[in-house]
Design a protein around this nucleic acid. Structure first.
Lengths: 159, 159
DNA sequence: CTGCTTGCAAAGTGTTTGCAGGCCC
DNA sequence: GGGCCTGCAAACACTTTGCAAGCAG
C-alpha cells in the first residue's frame, strides 16, 4: 500500500464495483482472477492465471478462469494479447481515464520466443496511417509483433 | 506462360530444384503443397492446404502437410502468418531475388475477423525504429495486426 | 538398398461447451 | 429462491509425434 505509484490504487475493488454496476455477479473466481492480474507486471496466460488463482481461491477451474476472463474482457476490465503461436496472455486494463496510455505493444522474437515491451508510441505512425488510409482502428497491443532479436540474429547468419 | 507478370514464373519447379539442391527429397506431397500455394492468392491454413492438395495427390495426410510446410519453411520457400487466435496461414515466399518486396502485412479486424492486406511500406517507420532502438529485425508479415475495421466500428459504438 | 518421408493413430496444447449443482443478489 | 456462475468432463480445433511401411535417390 505504498502510495508511491498508485494514482490507480485499488483496481480490484474498482473492478468489482464495475461488475456490480453492470449487473454481473462478484464471485470468488472473478475476484481471484482480478487479484492475480493486479498482482503481476507480467502477462500471464489462462493456465498461469488459473494456477495462481488456485492459491487464492482453492478449486477455481481452468474453464471458469476462461469464462471469467471472457466476461472481464467484455466489460473492458481485461485485455488480451495474441502471441505468436502460443497461448493468449491477459492483463488488467488500466482503469484510470486520465491514464489511457494503452500500455505498451509487444515485440516477440520468433527464435527465442522472448517478448520485449515497446512503448506504444513506436506504433503511432502506423496507427495514424491505418486510420487515415483504411479507417481502420489499430489496437497496437492486441497482437505481438514478430521478428528476430539482436541476440538471435548474431547467432543465426540469416540476413 | 504469358510473360506478362511473371518474371517469377515456374515457381514450383524452381522450388523443387531448391529441394534437390539441399538434398531434400521431391515427393508427391511436397509437390502438391507447393502447387496449392502457387495456385492461390489467398493465405491458406494447413487444413485448407491439405484439402486442396488431396485433389492433386489423393491420400496426402494432414500430418504430412504440416511436415512438408515445416520443411519448406526451413528452406525459406514458404512463409507463415499468425492470425489472431486462428490457424496459422501459409504462403509461398517469392523466390526472385530482385523482387524482395517481402509481400504485404496483414491487418485483421477483431470483430469480423476479416483480413486486409496492406502494403508493407506502411510498416517501414516501425521497422526502422525497432531496428534502430532495439536492433530488432521486424518481420512485418509474420503476424497479423489487430484492430477494428471501419464497418465494425460503425456498428459498435465503442470509442 | 538405405533411410528419408509418409500414413495413420494417438497424444498434446489451448480453448469452449453441456449439464447439474451452488452461490450471489 | 431464482437464475447467474461454477466445477467437472467431454468435446473441439490446431499441431506434433511414434511407429511401421513406402518410395526417392
Amino acid at each position: 500500500m505504498d502510495d508511491a505509484d498508485n494514482t490507480l490504487e485499488a483496481r480490484v475493488p474498482a473492478a468489482l464495483d464495475m461488475l456490480r454496476q453492470r449487473g454481473e455477479r462478484v464471485t470468488k473466481a472473478r475476484r481471484a482472477v482480478l487479484e492475480v492480474l493486479d498482482g503481476t507486471e507480467d502477462h500471464l496466460n489462462a493456465d498461469e492465471i488459473a494456477g495462481q488463482a488456485s492459491t487464492k481461491a482453492p478449486g477455481v477451474h481452468r474453464a471458469t478462469v476462461y469464462r471469467a476472463l471472457s466476461t472481464l474482457r467484455e466489460l473492458g476490465l481485461v485485455s488480451h494479447t495474441h502471441v505468436g503461436g502460443a497461448a493468449t496472455v491477459y492483463h488488467l486494463t488500466f482503469l484510470e481515464p486520465g491514464r489511457q496510455r494503452g500500455g505498451h505493444a509487444h515485440v516477440q522474437c520468433t527464435t527465442c520466443s522472448r517478448v520485449i515491451d515497446v512503448p506504444s508510441d513506436v506504433l503511432d505512425p502506423l496507427t495514424t496511417r491505418l486510420q487515415r488510409d483504411l479507417d481502420f482502428r489499430l489496437e497496437p497491443q492486441h497482437a505481438a509483433l514478430l521478428g528476430i532479436c539482436a541476440a538471435c540474429r548474431a547467432t543465426q547468419p540469416m540476413t
